[in-house]
Write a protein that binds this DNA or RNA. Structure first.
Lengths: 191, 191
DNA sequence: TACGGTGATGTCGCAAGGTGACATCGATGG
DNA sequence: CCATCGATGTCACCTTGCGACATCACCGTA
């Protein structure tokens, strides 16, 4: 085969997205993906840790932006996380809404991909918590702020991708955070 | 081999726990597990969906108890979830603390097992959210209460399994929920 | 132009996960 | 004594993922 094709990684990602969309994740072999990209199966595994990773390349970038946004503020922990997510929403989820929807439906259709997404989200939360702790917060406080912030983002994101939604992701995040505060504040105390 | 050995499922679970603890998850093959239990690899796959499931048999029971506890109260949603978790903590995490710790350390040492645990927790949250919605709550409210309740449980659980902790899980849950309320309530509003 | 190094890719083989199809055994009922 | 049925064993197979090695393009240098 022709070697040194440009952007091997990008072409493999595109091929994987196409094939997962056409046949589903399980019905697509790594050999299929590599063939569509004009490459070998072994090359795929050199660029991606496993078959699922082809759909999660952006998560590293997302973590980077999020951590920086949390660092660059001195607000209260929860507010810092929510603000950071709203900024991320404006940067990373502004365009290509069609591709985002396709990706979402592919993940939704495969338990394995859902597991991987949960892991990515978990490591995102861990990174945010570490950042908050580095700012002098107590471990439990940092973890709780990070985890509940991520929860808000996930719920808002789910509402945003749902068909028939027109609000912006940033607005949905703020709205969802407000509702979380209402729910939690209503709690009486040591149950 | 001798057939019709009693409690094949239980013996496979025990064998898996032992071997994962001795060599780690990756260094243990399904054939190893089946051999230690005196059974065949194919029998393992008939009783468990995949290799990881041998460590997560209790999650169905946990979901059942949790859903019932949420159903049997008419408190505010967040309080209902927290109370339910505290009740579960007293029922399911009272004895066998040594086994719980072993299981926890095994999962902690394997990314694949962490992924599976996250999925189990996610389906737990979904079940609780469904239960809350059945009580007439709005979708977003139900999801947020369920997810943040689970977050509280996870953080409390992490503190509880950590070496050198002596507080009860139920108390840690209440304490963590209080701290979450403090963090979220401190938030100013629409960022 | 020739030469050697370097890095990305292809080729091959293999252990392990996971599954379908079929054989086999034990118990149970007639 | 035989038929049946459900749980298990056996075999063959595909796919994932990886180690080891060969190969090609490119690049600097003489």
């Amino acid at each position: 085969m022709a070697r040194w094709q440009p952007d091997a990684r990008g072409r493999l990602e595109a091929a994987a997205l196409e094939l997962f969309g056409e046949r589903g994740f399980d019905q697509t072999t790594v050999t299929d993906i590599a063939a569509r990209a004009g490459l070998d199966k072994r090359t795929f595994y050199r660029l991606f840790g496993d078959k699922r990773e082809a759909l999660f390349s952006g998560s590293g970038h997302l973590e980077e932006i999020l951590v920086r946004a949390v660092t660059d503020t001195d607000a209260d922990p929860f507010e810092a996380v929510i603000t950071a997510f709203r900024r991320v929403a404006q940067v990373m989820f502004a365009d290509r809404l069609d591709l985002i929807r396709v990706r979402h439906s592919i993940i939704e259709a495969s338990p394995e991909l859902q597991e991987r997404e949960l892991r990515k989200i978990g490591s995102l939360a861990a990174a945010v918590a570490t950042t908050l702790r580095a700012k002098g917060l107590h471990e439990t406080t940092a973890t709780l702020a990070a985890e509940s912030g991520i929860t808000v983002f996930r719920v808002a994101y789910a509402r945003w991708v749902a068909p028939g939604s027109d609000a912006s992701l940033a607005d949905l995040i703020a709205e969802t955070a407000t509702e979380l505060r209402t729910i939690v504040s209503a709690w009486g105390g040591r149950g």
